[in-house]
Structures are given as structure tokens and as C-alpha cells.
Simulated assay, not measured.
Amino acid sequence: MKYSSVGTTGIEASRMILGCMRMAGLSTQEAAKVLSATREHGINFYDHADIYGGGQSEKVFAAAAKEIGLKRDDIFLQSKVGIRKGFFDFSKDHILTAVDGVLERLETDYLDFLLLHRPDTLVEPEEVAAAFEQLQQSGKVRHFGVSNQNPMQIELLQKFVPMKLQANQLQFGPAHTPMIDAGFYVNTLSDAATSRDGSILDYSRLHDMTIQPWSPFLVDLDQGLFIKHPDYQKLTATLTRYAKTYNVTLEAIVMAWILRHPAKMQPIAGSMNPERISGMVRGTEIELSREEWYDIYLSAGNSLP
């Protein structure tokens, strides 16, 4: 496993994150096998959210970590708050209450990273700032970030929040590339020139903000996995071909494709299958050529001007 800094924190974390959304459906013993696999392969960063399994994912993680003797000082824990049933809530009271719940379920005294989970249009950034300051001063959270936010949303928060926002979770993968599509078609009349995110990729690189790609194997939340999607069979075939070339799994090539981008992203693997996790990790050791990277991009149905 290779390691890289998260934002400007100086933290050297694994290039791949284990996303724990599906852990709620596992027994303690099954989750322990997953965590054993991550430890074996050098993954030391774990992503949670208070809505994952209604909090059950965090409880199962804590029990499994205890079972295998996973030391708190050897790992980085991240969780997200702000989504409630039927609405979003970035109020100070909710953030503070939600974090206390996260810490209790994870059986830990602090989070390494806290992210705001999807934008709340009713956000009062002064309240977010007050919550973050209280959490940092109390030692409950060390670093902060956001999820699914564009540059102006981040700038609005950053105007009031004194600590630097270090990470942003965004969907990205070979079948979901709006972060890079518009950049190819600058100053053209093509529909592909439409910017859907305010140039968040360039913004993140300029501000040393780590992008954590989620669901790299999805087209989107409605259409599911690209491997099973009829419109992405050429992409699947291309990835399969490179998997054979490098003697790795298709999932490893997807990870290698994301990590080949110089933005130094930190992709999230959401699998609860130890063998699949082992396969994905091999992608962190592969550096695709520029030609191979573009071949995969174009095979997903994208074009270049």
C-alpha cells in the first residue's frame, strides 16, 4: 500500500479508504475478517457516516476492531453528519449531538476527520464554525471537511470556519466523470463543455484539498454498477483487457485509473469482501500509462475535441 498526505494535515494515510456503509449487514466475526484484510494490506483509513445502517455500521466496526485488537493509534477514523430523515441539517446543535453519537458508537474519544454530508441550503456558516471550534477545542475532532460540495459552497463555509477544510467526497470513476469532462471542452459550444460542479477538481488542486472518490464502480445512484450496465460494456471490456495485462482484477484497474490522476485522490472502496479488497489494493501499485488512462476514459463513451 502506498501512502499520501490528506490535505495539508501532514497525515500520511493509505491511498485507499475502506468505506463502511455496508458493514451494518455483517456480524462482528464477518466484519473482523474485513478489518483483518485491511490491516494486512496496509489500509489504515476508515470512512463512516451516522446514517449508515442508522448508526449500526459504526457499532459493528467498533466491535470488530476490538475483536482483532485494532489499535486506535494505528488508524484514522472519519465520519460524516448532516443528513436527517427527510432533510439536511448543518445546525450547531445537530452537528454537536450527531458527533457525540458517532463517538459513542465507534467507542472512541475522537475523530481524525469530520465531514459535512451533502450540502444544506439552509446552512448558517457561523453555526458550523461555532460547532467545529467547539469540537476541535474539546479534542473530539481533529480535522474537518465536506462531502459533495462545489467551490462556492466550500468558500462560503471557509469564510467563517477558521480551520482549513481538508477533504471533499465526490463521486468519480470511469463511468462517472463530470469532474473532468468539461475541462476538455473549454471554449467550445459542445454540451460536454457544461460545468456541473464549478471546476471542483481544479479548485481542490489549487487549495490542497483531498478528493475522496466514492462509489467508483457506479454509473450513478439510479443506474447502478457500470459492469452490469448495457451502455458501458465497452468500458468493462477495456478494463478486463488491462486487468489481464497487469494480472490483476478489474477493480484494481479502476483504482489504478483513479490514482493515476495527479490530483492525488484517495478513493473509497465499499466492499465487505476480503478477497475483493485484496484485489483492489493491487491497483495502488500500478501506474497506468497516459495512453492507457485515455483509452479507458474514451471506452466509457467519452470523447475528446
Rank of each mutant, 00 (worst) to 15 (best):
S5K: 04
G10W: 02
E12Y: 06
S14D: 01
R15Y: 15
L18M: 10
G19V: 02
C20H: 00
C20G: 01
G25Y: 08
S27N: 01
Q29R: 10
E30G: 11
A31C: 04
V34M: 06
L35T: 00
L35Q: 02
L35V: 00
E40Q: 12
H41P: 07
F45G: 05
Y46T: 04
H48L: 07
A49Y: 01
D50M: 02
V60A: 09
F61A: 01
A62W: 02
A63D: 13
K66L: 02
E67H: 05
E67L: 14
L70T: 01
L77A: 00
R84T: 06
H94V: 01
V102P: 07
V102Q: 09
R105A: 00
L106I: 03
E107A: 00
Y110D: 07
F113Q: 00
L115F: 02
D120W: 12
T121G: 10
E124Q: 10
A130F: 15
E133C: 11
K140Q: 12
K140R: 14
H143I: 03
H143K: 14
F144W: 14
V146M: 09
N150H: 08
Q153A: 05
Q153E: 11
P162A: 12
M163Q: 09
K164H: 15
Q166S: 13
A167C: 15
A167N: 05
F172H: 15
P174D: 04
T177M: 02
P178S: 08
M179E: 04
D181W: 00
L189C: 03
A192D: 09
A193P: 03
S195P: 07
S195G: 09
S195R: 15
G198R: 12
L201M: 13
Y203Q: 03
M209F: 12
I211F: 10
P213F: 01
S215W: 01
L218K: 11
L221W: 15
Q223R: 13
L225D: 03
D231Q: 11
T236G: 03
A237Q: 08
L239F: 02
L239A: 02
T240E: 12
R241F: 03
A243E: 09
Y246R: 07
T249D: 00
L250Y: 10
P262K: 14
A263F: 08
M265H: 10
M265V: 13
P267N: 04
M272V: 15
N273C: 08
N273S: 13
S278C: 05
E285D: 15
L288E: 09
S289W: 14
E292W: 05
W293R: 06
Y297L: 10
Y297W: 11
L298K: 11
G301Q: 11
L304A: 09
P305T: 08
